[in-house]
Amino acid sequence: MTGLAQLHSDIDVRVHTILEGHADWLCGKGCDGCCRRLAEIPQLTCAEWALLREGLAALSAERLQEIRGNMLAIRCQQDRPLTCPLLDRSNGTCPVYHQRPVACRTYGFYVQRDKGLYCHDIELQVDEGRLPSVVWGNHDAIDQRLAGLGESRSLSDWFEMDAI
């Protein structure tokens, strides 16, 4: 198993464990809040980009053209938050969900000690004491593992470099 595949597997186990104990968890099909409220353009390692590129290659020419336009727009956008350029805005789904980056896989399930929980809706539940039994994943550890998977660049930089 490659380093990225093992990392995905470990993340899936943590996410599954959290979901098993919380059937009403906010993150799931139909929720695209995190995709519509990005603080920055996502960073991907070389390994993540290679996997994501496979998913992009399977999309229609029309969908790729739409993503290309979104990539150009996001590079110039100064306002925050950003909307993920991959998001299908008409139905709130990710067309490359199975190839999505680690940042997307961990959002809502992992935290960094110095940065909080990120998702406002989950933070509200934590503040109200409704999630005391959650054993959050350690995002600092994830970042350390990602650092071993190659250089990291923004999604828009990878997309432009690869001329998809």
Rank of each mutant, 00 (worst) to 15 (best):
S154A: 11
Y118K: 13
A141N: 12
L131R: 03
P81S: 06
L64D: 05
Y118G: 07
E20D: 13
I67M: 07
S60F: 03
G150P: 11
E48P: 00
V96P: 00
I41R: 06
T17V: 13
G30Y: 08
V134D: 06
Q99H: 14
G21P: 14
L155H: 04
A5V: 09
A141M: 10
G33V: 05
C76M: 12
R36F: 02
V102I: 15
E20Q: 15
I18D: 06
T106K: 06
I18W: 04
D140I: 09
L87Q: 07
G148Q: 11
L87E: 06
V126D: 10
S90V: 10
D32P: 02
V15Y: 05
G3K: 09
S9R: 12
L87W: 02
C46A: 12
V13A: 15
R14G: 05
D79Q: 15
M161W: 15
G33P: 00
C84T: 03
H120C: 08
D79A: 15
A103D: 00
R113D: 14
T45C: 04
Y107K: 02
R68G: 11
P132N: 05
L4Q: 04
P101M: 08
D12R: 02
F159A: 01
D114R: 14
N138Q: 10
W158A: 01
H139C: 04
K29V: 11
H98C: 08
I142W: 03
Q144A: 14
M1L: 07
Q112V: 11
L7C: 02
N70F: 03
P101A: 14
D114M: 08
A163C: 12
A61D: 13
E128A: 13
M71R: 01
N138V: 06
I122K: 04
L26E: 12
G108R: 04
I142P: 00
D140A: 15
R37F: 07
C76A: 11
A73S: 10
T17R: 14
A5R: 11
E62C: 01
C84P: 02
Q99V: 01
D127S: 12
N138P: 01
Q43K: 10
L59M: 06
G129K: 08
R53P: 00
I11P: 00
E48G: 00
G28E: 13
A39M: 10
S9F: 08
G148T: 12
R113K: 12
D24T: 09
L155P: 11
D121E: 11
